[in-house]
């Protein structure tokens, strides 16, 4: 699928920095395909669990961008336990948590929390987040910088060189 090629480009560990051309290309591809969101979240879950930190960090940036740019269809897929469980595995010491960097775990928790605030209708996101709090995996709600809250605005495009 073209989506697979796009996610590989957007999360490639040899990218020197987050590549917004590829990230936007991935979002556009999701919006074009009927099954785009379902395929995308499955691929992203796999990348987020990468043992390479930089690949995982880029995948989380892509996920955040998709939540801003791919609309309700994408929110609905993220709001299923099928996908949320893959994020829970990343932060839980019972699963991958002990092998995942703090940077990746912090970003996962920040994203989950920001969605509980921005998308209250996606009740499973709240269920997942509060389960992590009950388990003591999340000790306090993170402070989300204003520019990182989920508002449906286009992400910054790189300036022309």
């Amino acid at each position: 699928s073209e989506i697979e090629g796009e996610v590989d480009k957007a999360t490639n560990p040899s990218n020197r920095q987050e590549d917004w051309e590829y990230i936007i290309g991935f979002c556009d591809q999701i919006n074009k395909e009927l099954e785009g969101p379902q395929i995308a979240v499955r691929l992203l879950a796999h990348k987020i669990q990468s043992p390479q930190e930089w690949e995982a960090v880029q995948a989380l940036t892509v996920l955040e961008a998709c939540m801003k740019n791919c609309g309700r269809r994408f929110h609905n897929e993220v709001g299923k336990f099928r996908f949320l469980n893959e994020l829970i595995k990343v932060v839980s010491p019972k699963y991958l948590g002990d092998r995942v960097s703090e940077k990746v775990k912090t970003k996962v928790i920040e994203l989950l929390y920001s969605w509980t605030v921005a998308l209250p209708e996606e009740s499973k996101i709240k269920d997942a987040y509060y389960m992590l709090k009950r388990q003591g995996i999340v000790m306090f709600d993170p402070v989300i910088p204003a520019d990182r809250t989920l508002i449906p605005s286009p992400p910054p495009r790189p300036k022309n060189p």
Partner: peptide
């Protein structure tokens, strides 16, 4: 029907 069965199969990870 597909959506209903998908909903039934969608569970939070056991911890």
């Amino acid at each position: 029907l597909g959506e209903e069965s998908e909903e039934r199969d969608d569970h939070l990870l056991p911890m």
